[in-house]
């Protein structure tokens, strides 16, 4: 799968309270959640983000709570993929379960700038910076996670499995 979009760059240890503050968790409608994504961290994000845009961060992205509302809000805001030096564990699981791909690439995290346009090949883990004309590679996504993404997340994946079993 190939993705292309503008980069939104964030720092290290971005926590789930920053991605979606707890005060909005009294409901779980993705569209409502998306309206407040990154609100305290970077208020202009939600106004300007376009469908397909890509989020870039430093280490330990998504640390903190287990709220699936975090990847859900980013996905509903239009984010197609997140590239970071590393991800917090629960955020990592949640994102793939929702069909939101994550790529780990320390070099891309360092070199790519906010606002750059980037093309990502999820099958190979290759990241191409269209603005700087530079190539980076990410740790390839494990086969098991690839299968989740192809089905669109854990739920459709389990449904497909059930169907196959009849």
């Amino acid at each position: 799968m190939i993705l292309e979009g503008r980069i939104w760059k964030f720092g290290a240890d971005v926590d789930t309270d920053a991605i979606i503050p707890a005060r909005y968790l009294n409901q779980s409608d993705p569209k409502e959640l998306a309206k407040h994504a990154m609100e305290d961290e970077r208020p202009e994000f939600i106004k300007d983000v376009k469908k397909g845009d890509i989020l870039l961060a430093d280490k330990n992205f998504g640390c903190g709570s287990s709220r699936e509302h975090a990847p859900l809000a980013l996905k509903a805001a239009g984010i197609s993929c997140i590239i970071a030096k590393s991800f917090a564990r629960i955020f990592f699981r949640n994102s793939f379960n929702l069909g939101l791909p994550l790529l780990e690439s320390p070099e891309a995290s360092e070199a790519i700038k906010d606002g750059d346009r980037v093309r990502v090949d999820l099958d190979t883990g290759e990241i191409f910076n269209l603005t700087q004309r530079k190539k980076f590679s990410a740790t390839p996504i494990p086969a098991f996670m690839q299968a989740l993404l192809k089905d669109g997340g854990l739920i459709p994946h389990l449904r497909n499995k059930r169907k196959k079993r009849g």
Partner: peptide, 23 residues
């Protein structure tokens, strides 16, 4: 548990960990 502090029960010698809602 769908709560990150599910790891608390490790204090009793259990394996416990937080997951998201879909899991």
């Amino acid at each position: 548990g769908a709560d990150s502090h599910t790891c608390t029960y490790g204090a009793m010698g259990a394996f416990s960990t937080g997951v998201g809602s879909t899991d």
